[in-house]
Design a protein around this nucleic acid. Structure first.
Lengths: 235, 235
DNA sequence: CGTGTGATTGACGCCTGTCAACGTCTGTGG
DNA sequence: CCACAGACGTTGACAGGCGTCAATCACACG
């Protein structure tokens, strides 16, 4: 509503970042375009909350979200990030359960809301879309399983190195090798699954060891090879 | 091959434990019945191996499997168990990736192999089956995400209590409140994500505290309430 | 300029992983 | 029938990784 220009068309989205909607027929496309509701969200906004019943899912046109579960003492465990082109919130629609996580805006975002019934009906009627959706889910499942093994078996040090590399893959580096995401130390610790202080101390160590350089929340990646070695990378 | 009588019919399977195949039409059913290959596997057999390319998935008619990933130093991380009625190995078929985990027989099992193309074609053509399959996957994803949070935030003690309760849900207790699975201490530690010695020590503590009773691999659950409290259960 | 949030650093100690030795049980082969 | 190997379970000793608490600093914002 802030800006009519912000409302994107799925067709352009598909061209821009190849979403799963490429499997839709022109008619289905038009239907989705009509039914969707797009909005702008500022940093800090919560898109949906763990435990709530949702009635649709979202396609991320721009910005960054964190997807997290709330654990002991309200401590967040970040499960994943979402960036442009990603779909979020479809899991609970398809499983018919309550939302198992929350989604919060980290960088101002434009989101398209699509009703759950639309998704279900597409899954039922469009085999190719359904299969693609399935692939998406199964890949997420594979990632989650790998993460379980990592957290269960690796030390905090190894995991932090790994997280830095994963963030690099997801958000890329700029020309100066700086990670293109701005996360608080606490958020970093909530990905790794450790205390904030531990992250701070390990980042300092990494800096001393010339693996990274730190400037506030800007993290410059200096030595990918050694980070991989530290992360015990065979994955 | 060991015993022709062992080859089950999907129809009886569906009646016995309500599998996802209830969504198939009679014709589809017949097709699956023709294409499937059933076999008996003894304890210790590996059904499929992490990293291998699979060309089908399995429906578990009887027995118990463990699904695990191999991490540092070849240490197993048990992701899940499969018992009668469960489907395994479909993830990699649908995502088109290599197997992200291994499956090994813990209790002698009868498995029906179904070709991957059959699954893909069913997903494409049968909307209701597809949706049900999707639900299955999405639920697994929800479970995996919860597990990530647990392992990341809970202590070993809390996790062990939780694992015992989960095993109780999955495999039930007999008339004498004994867990109906036989796991080695090492396997238990590979679920919890800790050292074997830690599991042994904590089990002894639980026994001293009258939470459980131990007789070799037989674990009798004495006090569910307090186990729940220890596991920090709000899930 | 006060307030609040986030970042850092130090101290402290417990939880856990590791190593090593030993006990137990089962199956195998002589 | 016994000896032995091998897998599994148990216990103790020990150190160090990592969480917790507390104090201080840095910085943005109204």
């Amino acid at each position: 509503m802030k800006n009519r220009d912000l409302i994107p068309f799925c067709e352009t989205c598909i061209n821009d970042f190849d979403t799963i909607f490429r499997h839709l027929t022109p008619e289905e496309h038009q239907k989705v375009n009509q039914e969707k509701v797009c909005n702008f969200y500022k940093r800090g906004n919560v898109i949906y909350h763990e435990g709530s019943r949702t009635n649709g899912f979202y396609c991320l046109n721009s910005g960054v979200l964190k997807i997290f579960k709330t654990g002991i003492d309200g401590r967040e465990q970040i499960i994943a990030f979402a960036k442009k082109g990603d779909l979020i919130g479809f899991r609970s629609i398809l499983s018919g359960e309550l939302a198992c996580s929350s989604a919060k805006v980290i960088e101002d975002a434009v989101l398209c809301f699509i009703p759950g019934e639309t998704l279900i009906s597409l899954v039922k009627t469009n085999g190719n879309f359904s299969l693609a959706m399935m692939q998406l889910t199964c890949k997420e499942l594979g990632v989650a399983n790998a993460y379980i093994t990592d957290i269960a078996q690796k030390t905090v040090r190894e995991r932090l190195a790994e997280v830095l590399l994963k963030l690099m893959d997801t958000f890329n580096l700029d020309d100066d090798n700086v990670l293109q995401v701005s996360l608080t130390r606490e958020e970093l610790s909530n990905i790794v699954g450790t205390a904030t202080e531990s992250v701070i101390r390990l980042l300092s160590e990494f800096k001393q060891d010339k693996l990274i350089d730190i400037n506030g929340r800007k993290i410059k990646i200096l030595d990918v090879k050694r980070l991989e070695k530290i992360s015990n990378a065979f994955n």
